[in-house]
């Protein structure tokens, strides 16, 4: 019996890998079983030390140049094989774009239920997890009764807590034979310095109130001052002012930053769903009766083109 955490990498281990490991350690402790980890990628070598303090007994490393990039065909069998071999009781992955796909396929292979995108999990005579439904309009507490119990954890929610535990032992796994059906032709990664929305500590979003794409430079300056990621309402996306990957909301991304600044956004229920997990919400809107002022912590009634540049200036001076 053991808990297995899947460590996601994209070149380097991702932050969500450490978050999942931290949560998995707490779960394994409560269950009184060891925690193991699985790494699939090109090479873990120089990152092993970063796995100290997470209570990982052994990290199984399947390292090969051919595994550098996620491949459903190659990865699923590796995870399935190890889970079966270890008889893992709990499997915890990350609810990232690729992590969700991996977990779904593995759960199907193992023929067990899986709860994706949980905001927490705990051990209480079995695994329980808190799962947002309807983009977070409802929170559900679920008990998993399959073996293994499988969850994926939402990035940027769990904080990484380290303890005194040592660097885990590495167990090298052989590269399995796989026939690839899906062929990776190209990978494009974010430009350096661009903060990913779902992982950002601060998000600045713009809506129809920008009046046109010419508003983004104004918001981007605020983003730069804050190290923030740029979000958008659906109205801004559907107007063709910005790529859909920036959309926040029920049919966009659910973000969980410490600070969310909504500029020229009215606060429709679908938008609220995406920003709800934010710790503090600030609204800048020229209409004092806009819904956003009922669902924010701090509001400024005014023209964003006057307020935002002043705010950027003030932040530059203060921080």
């Amino acid at each position: 019996m053991s808990v297995l955490v899947l460590l996601e990498q994209r070149g380097r281990l991702r932050k969500c890998a450490f978050e999942a490991a931290s949560a998995a350690r707490d779960t394994a402790r409560a269950a009184g079983v060891p925690l193991n980890a699985l790494y699939i990628g090109q090479s873990l070598a120089d990152e092993t030390a970063e796995l100290a303090g997470l209570g990982i007994a052994q990290v199984f490393a399947c390292e090969n140049e051919a595994l550098k990039y996620y491949s459903n065909d190659a990865y699923v069998g590796i995870v399935e094989g190890l889970v079966r071999e270890l008889g893992a009781q709990v499997v915890i992955g990350s609810a990232s774009a690729l992590g969700k796909e991996l977990c779904a396929s593995v759960a199907a292979r193992l023929d067990v239920d899986l709860i994706q995108d949980c905001v927490s999990c705990a051990w209480d005579n079995g695994l329980t997890a808190v799962k947002p439904l309807y983009a977070g309009k409802v929170l559900s507490t679920v008990r998993l009764t399959g073996t293994p119990a499988m969850v994926s954890l939402r990035p940027n929610v769990v904080s990484v807590v380290r303890d005194e535990s040592p660097v885990p032992a590495i167990v090298h796994r052989p590269m399995p034979e796989v026939s690839l059906r899906s062929v990776l032709k190209a990978v494009s990664e974010a430009a350096a310095g661009v903060v990913e929305l779902t992982e950002a500590k601060v998000v600045v979003s713009g809506g129809r109130g920008l009046g046109g794409p010419e508003g983004w430079p104004v918001l981007k300056e605020l983003c730069t001052a804050l190290g923030a990621a740029l979000g958008a309402s659906r109205a801004a996306v559907d107007s063709g002012w910005i790529h859909h990957s920036h959309q926040v909301g029920q049919t966009g991304k659910v973000v969980c930053p410490d600070l969310y600044i909504a500029c020229g956004i009215s606060g429709a229920i679908q938008h609220q769903a995406g920003m709800r997990p934010a710790k503090i919400i600030v609204a800048i809107n020229k209409d004092p009766s806009a819904t956003i002022f009922k669902v924010c912590d701090y509001g400024i009634v005014g023209d964003l083109y006057e307020i935002v540049p002043l705010l950027t200036q003030e932040l530059k001076e203060t921080l």
Partner: peptide
């Protein structure tokens, strides 16, 4: 994917 994309066949 976060901040990018895979092109697959």
């Amino acid at each position: 994917i976060e901040g990018g994309q895979y092109t697959l066949e």
